[in-house]
Nucleic acid binder design. Structure first.
Length: 565
DNA sequence: TGCCCTTTGAAGTGC
DNA sequence: GCACTTCAAAGGGCA
């Protein structure tokens, strides 16, 4: 139970969150330090990203080069994601979330999880080997922690009562895997399912050739042999991407993956009709049934025509509308945090009494920052893969295409918001979510079940900035991002967001507050204080608390922002 | 019914 | 290059 190791072990990254509440004097002293720390973090982050990109780029490029003609059948991005989430949810439980178990990209865990897929659990062993080979980072324990493939519980899929399983059965990569979830159609173990392929010479499970893999997929006879390994883009040996983009790219239809009946029912029961291939042509006009594709009729906001991307515009309203109807809404690929969120949300919800996503997201946000570098790296990698895949699937797609498809938020048009407004609102928000967070975080951390992902002690300790007073540096030695609080801190300290953190202005409060609103335009993570309060508060914490309360009570909001007018 | 809230990150826009 | 905006997921809250 790494999360309860006293000291900095307080969880959820509360440590670093405290930094914004330091006394000014201390702040000043820390400014330079924090700036450099921030820089370090940024560097770390970028290095990590580059690292993972480099690691994968080679294989990716290789794959791209060698990519034969993967005929991956794509299914809807979302459908697949959700589908797997569902399947996994049934499998998992909310068990402990231990960093070591993030094992790596247990793509192959899926089949294992959805055991019907592997009636004999044959794939799992190779999967483990495979994973370990592919992802050196994956620790053996993590892999070992996987459900024993040899003892598949045929009934657990139908078991609606969460079984205590490894939390990581819902793996960061599951969303990605779901790009072609059909490949792992649970409950529909192909009768022709073949056992794992072992190297006749070494006896070591080897990555089967696509044609060899095909039996694993519930494909129609004609499709068999055409489907690349679902992990193709991650499998150097295969050198194939899950989804190859034909020369025509976006316009070329992809071969649809034959969805067997059970799969179909599963999916259809899980996904809204619009997600199902009921398109006039059975799929997206691009021919790419992708989770990112959402029926415009459902996803698009009315009156959003004027915001349509150029490509969406048409000369006449009529045709324009038609085109819109035809043009599916291609969602943005999920970023690392989103992937993490998607995976962990269920757990948080299960472990907390929370139901409000806003509150849950706050918790998730803190947890995200509490993740070790390795853990986050996995999500970054996953996100990168998602983007990569997305870009391959939709070469012509641009995030801009989705601009204006959402109704502009009201607050976006409220330029007259005053700091007071923000303070009041945020106070309310904080109050609103405070109990929830407390309820969740405290118990969770106390019983050590989920809070799990605080920065690993070792990692945290690895940081030279171990002193309790320097939580900022210490708390996130591995964090690749500046925390939300960190952002605030940064604003607080430097008045300038860091790198990618520029999005601190994102969403709600940001829009209207981004310019001169006090940094408190966002709710202060009181939870961090709770964390502090839950454990013997250090002098620093006390000071931070005091400082924090003072800030809020005296409303010196204008004092905490350099950018304010 | 549909926007808001909340989170982080990616990508777009504008200067 | 920087600052800012939008969107991605999720689901309860609320008008």
């Amino acid at each position: 139970m790494p999360q309860l190791n006293g000291g900095g072990g307080d969880d959820l990254g509360a440590n670093d969150e405290m930094i914004s509440f330091k006394d000014e004097g201390e702040q000043e002293e820390k400014i330079s330090e924090n700036v450099s720390a921030e820089r370090d973090l940024d560097d770390l982050k970028s290095s990590l990203v580059n690292e993972s990109e480099n690691n994968s780029s080679s294989s990716d490029s290789e794959q791209a080069e060698r990519r034969p003609q993967p005929r991956p059948d794509l299914d809807s991005y979302e459908k697949t994601r959700d589908y797997f989430s569902e399947a996994l949810r049934r499998q998992q439980d909310g068990g402990f979330f231990k960093s070591p178990h993030y094992p790596g990209y247990p793509f192959l865990m899926i089949p294992d999880l959805t055991n019907p897929y592997l009636s004999n659990g044959a794939l799992s062993p190779s999967a483990r080997t495979y994973l370990q080979m592919k992802w050196p980072l994956l620790d053996v324990p993590g892999a070992a922690g996987l459900k024993d493939p040899r003892s598949p519980t045929p009934g657990h899929l139908s078991n609606k009562v969460p079984v205590v399983q490894h939390a990581h059965h819902v793996h960061p990569l599951t969303p990605l895997i779901t790009y072609s979830n059909e490949h792992f159609s649970p409950g529909t173990p192909p009768s022709h399912l073949s056992p794992e392929i072992l190297d006749p010479k070494t006896g070591i499970p080897r990555t089967p050739h696509p044609s060899e893999l095909s039996p694993y997929y519930p494909l129609s006879p004609g499709a068999v042999g055409q489907i690349p390994h679902p992990l193709g883009w991650l499998v150097p040996q295969q050198g194939q991407h899950m989804y190859s983009i034909p020369p025509g790219g976006f316009r070329h239809p992809y071969p649809a993956l034959a969805m067997n009946a059970s799969m179909s029912s599963l999916v259809s029961s899980r996904f809204s009709p619009h997600m199902m291939p009921h398109h006039p042509h059975g799929m997206h006009q691009t021919g790419i049934p992708h989770p990112a594709i959402v029926s415009p009729a459902i996803k698009q906001e009315p009156n959003s025509h004027d915001h349509m991307s150029p490509s969406m515009h048409s000369k006449s309203p009529g045709p324009a509308k038609k085109e819109e109807d035809k043009k599916p809404h291609i969602k943005k690929p999920l970023n690392a945090f989103m992937l993490y969120m998607k995976e962990m949300r269920a757990k948080v919800v299960a472990e907390c009494t929370l139901k409000e996503s806003a509150a849950i997201n706050q918790i998730l946000g803190r947890r995200w920052h509490s993740l070790s570098r390795e853990e986050q790296a996995k999500y970054y990698e996953l996100a990168r893969k998602e983007r990569q895949l997305h870009s391959q699937l939709y070469p012509g797609w641009s995030a801009r295409d989705n601009y204006g498809k959402r109704k502009k938020r009201k607050r976006d048009n409220k330029p007259d918001s005053t700091p007071e407004d923000f303070s009041i609102r945020n106070k309310n928000q904080c109050v609103q979510y405070l109990p929830s967070e407390k309820m969740c975080d405290s118990p969770a951390s106390s019983h050590g079940s989920m809070l799990d992902s605080p920065a690993t002690p070792s990692a945290a300790l690895a940081s030279p900035a171990a002193p309790a007073a320097t939580h900022s540096e210490q708390a996130q030695p591995l964090s690749l991002t500046t925390k939300p609080e960190g952002r605030l801190h940064h604003h607080f300290l430097t008045g300038k967001p860091s790198g990618s953190a520029s999005s601190s202005s994102s969403s709600s409060s940001s829009s209207s507050s981004s310019h001169s609103a006090p940094i408190f335009s966002r709710p202060i993570p009181f939870s961090s204080l709770h964390h502090s309060m839950l454990s013997p508060p250090s002098p620093f914490h006390q000071a931070a608390l005091h400082s924090h309360h003072a800030l809020f009570q005296s409303q010196p909001l204008s004092l905490v922002t350099k950018s304010s007018d």
